[in-house]
Each structure stands twice: as C-alpha cells, then as structure tokens.
Amino acid sequence: MPSHTFVLNGQQVTVDVEDDVRLLWVLRDLLGVTGPKYGCGLGVCQACTSHINGKAVNICCVPVSDVQPTDEVTTIEGLPATVGQELHPMQQAWLDMDVPQCGYCQPGQIMAAVAKVLQARAAGRQLGDADFDQIRNICRCGTYHRIREAILPAQTKF
C-alpha cells in the first residue's frame, strides 16, 4: 500500500493508503481529524473546505497522491496556529456575531471566508458583494446573513 507524507496542521504525518482516496477521508477516517465535514463529496457544498498551502480547497476532491511531502494542509483545527493565536480572528468574529446554528457547515464557512479575504487582499481590495456571490458554501440552517456580518469587520483583523 502506498505511503503518503504531508504536513497536517504543522505536524508531519505519514499514512498508508491507496493513491486515489480523497484527502477528506484520509483526514477523517484514518487520521481522526473531523473538523472538515462531508456534505456532498462532489465539490459542491464546501463543507470540507480546508487550506492547502494557504489556499481554500475542497479536500473531498483531492486524491491523497496529489499532496506532496512539503504541502501544508490546514484544517479548522489548525487555523488558529496560522496566526499564532488561541482563535483566528475569523473564528472570533463568528463568536461575536453568534453565527453558528447547528454548526455543521461552519468549519468550511470559516476556512472559505479566510481564503476569500486573503484572495481579495492579494488583489488589493476588500471583500464586496461580488465576492459574497462567490462563496458557494451551503448553510442549510440559513446563517448566511450573519456570515456576511462576521466577515466584513474581521477582514481587517488578520
């Protein structure tokens, strides 16, 4: 069985599993990292959104063999460490706005929000309506409005 090595939330990990198994299942089923959620396995719902080298990725659509030994995989569990704090400012904003209902979508929402802010910042601007139209994450509890309200003030805080 092939062996795969990568950096997961700051720690190097090695796992023996077939090449084509998607990263979501490697994390959840083999490594016990359950922050990223399953909502479709189709790259649609965005519940599994995590970061690879700082960019948002639907890890249900990444065969583990696509991940290189030096690649940094960050899940919601590892997000605070990327800014060296207890909580990432985006997580704090989520708390301030009391965003979650059931909470199932929220790890993916937060990881997507952080990446969207960084993407806009790299392009030299703040998040606008057009950016919100690109946030495809489903929230079946309908917390969309609070998500907008949380992201806007948080984007200047990291």
Partner: peptide
C-alpha cells in the same frame, strides 16, 4: 468524487 480539487483552489 471529482479529482480536480487543487486546480480549483
């Protein structure tokens, strides 16, 4: 499941 996750990052 698709395999194009990285290209949509």
């Amino acid at each position: 499941s698709p395999t194009d996750g990285l290209s949509r990052a």
